[in-house]
Simulated assay, not measured.
Amino acid sequence: MLFIVRMFLMGLHFIVVGALGLLIGLCRPFNPDNSRLFARLYGHPAVKILGLDLKTEVGPLFDQPPGCVIVANHQSNYDLFVLGKVVPPRTVCIGKKSLKWVPFFGQLFWLGGNVLIDRGNSAKARKALQTTTRTLTQENTSIWVFPEGTRNSGSELMPFKRGAFQMAIDAGVPIVPVCVSRYARRLRLGSLRSGKISIRSLAPIPTTGLSAADIPQLIQQCQQQMQQCIDAMERDVQVA
């Protein structure tokens, strides 16, 4: 019964935020701070509705000035709500082009100034990624990327794609890893307290002076740090 109530409230919440967000987005279209605002509108009420116990330790993320590449693990569609609290100012996201057709959310994603990529067209995808260098260096804006490229609720991170790391090197900006504990398989939305989730950001990884030849090592370093952090958070969640 509680699950049904929650899903009804979440559906209503999704529609209300979508309508409100569209009004805001139309008043200030493509403002780079729209995404943070929309994330807050989605995230804060949803965490309460879903009964999530959310713990955040993201000092390094908010201490880093805008103009960095943020990489995070991606588990489920609930990430939209779980991560809403930790999106820093002037941050946009990279997503697949088809997202803009999702009712309400897709239009907000577009009006938020996020980067839409046609993954079925490699030439257009490369061109879209090239524009991110200007976004990072000239527009004082950070870019949030899920480097696994798809949802992954398993215990091990999937291989990271090169795009985020190439962007960071081209722009000469740091990479800030954000780690989320493995909550997707533990969610119990029919319970009063549906699950504990930890989010932790790691120290920025500098890219100044690096080249394309350094990407494999950079990916390995980032993925290893994130995996160790996620494993540590998992142990803490299980003990608590």
Rank of each mutant, 00 (worst) to 15 (best):
I175N: 05
N73C: 05
A203M: 13
W101M: 14
A213E: 13
R235A: 15
P45G: 10
V47N: 14
M167Y: 05
T131L: 09
D214N: 09
M158L: 13
N34M: 10
G113F: 10
N121W: 01
V92Y: 02
P174R: 01
L20N: 08
P216A: 02
A125P: 03
G149F: 02
R200T: 04
W144S: 07
Q221Y: 06
N114P: 14
V237L: 11
K161A: 00
V17C: 08
Q217S: 15
T135C: 11
R200I: 01
N31S: 14
M233T: 00
K161E: 06
L50T: 07
W144A: 08
A184D: 12
K100L: 04
V178K: 04
G21V: 02
G95F: 00
K161R: 14
N140S: 12
Y42D: 13
M10A: 02
V176N: 03
L187C: 12
V180G: 00
K96N: 12
E148N: 04
L37M: 10
F62T: 11
P177V: 06
I24M: 13
V239H: 15
V173W: 01
Q238Y: 14
R151P: 00
G209M: 06
L61D: 08
T135L: 09
L99I: 11
S191V: 06
T135N: 07
K161W: 00
E148H: 01
Q223K: 03
I199G: 06
V180D: 00
K124R: 12
H44Q: 15
V145N: 02
Q220L: 06
L26G: 14
A19W: 09
S153R: 00
P32H: 11
L218K: 05
F81L: 07
G21T: 03
S122T: 14
T91Q: 10
A212G: 15
P88F: 04
W110I: 11
P216M: 05
C179S: 02
S194R: 04
A46W: 05
V17K: 06
L192V: 14
K196T: 10
I219Q: 12
L111S: 07
V239W: 15
A46P: 07
D63V: 06
D33R: 08
K124W: 10
K85P: 14
F81Q: 07
P88I: 04
S153H: 01
Q220G: 07
L210R: 05
T131I: 10
S191K: 13
V178F: 05
A232L: 02
D33T: 12
A123Y: 13
N34A: 07
G190L: 05
V17F: 03
N152G: 01
K124I: 08
L12I: 14
D170H: 04
G149M: 03
I143P: 01
T137V: 14
D231S: 11
G112D: 05
R40A: 08
G112F: 04
N73R: 05
F104P: 12
I94L: 03
V5A: 13
T141E: 12
Q238G: 10
G51W: 01
I219E: 14
S98A: 15
R186A: 13
L50N: 10
F3K: 14
G149R: 01
N140M: 11
P103M: 10
L116K: 03
D170K: 06
I175T: 03
I4R: 15
N121H: 02
R162K: 14
T141K: 03
S194T: 08
G84A: 13
G112R: 04
L202D: 00
T135D: 09
R40Y: 07
L22C: 12
L37A: 07
V173G: 02
P206H: 07
R235V: 09
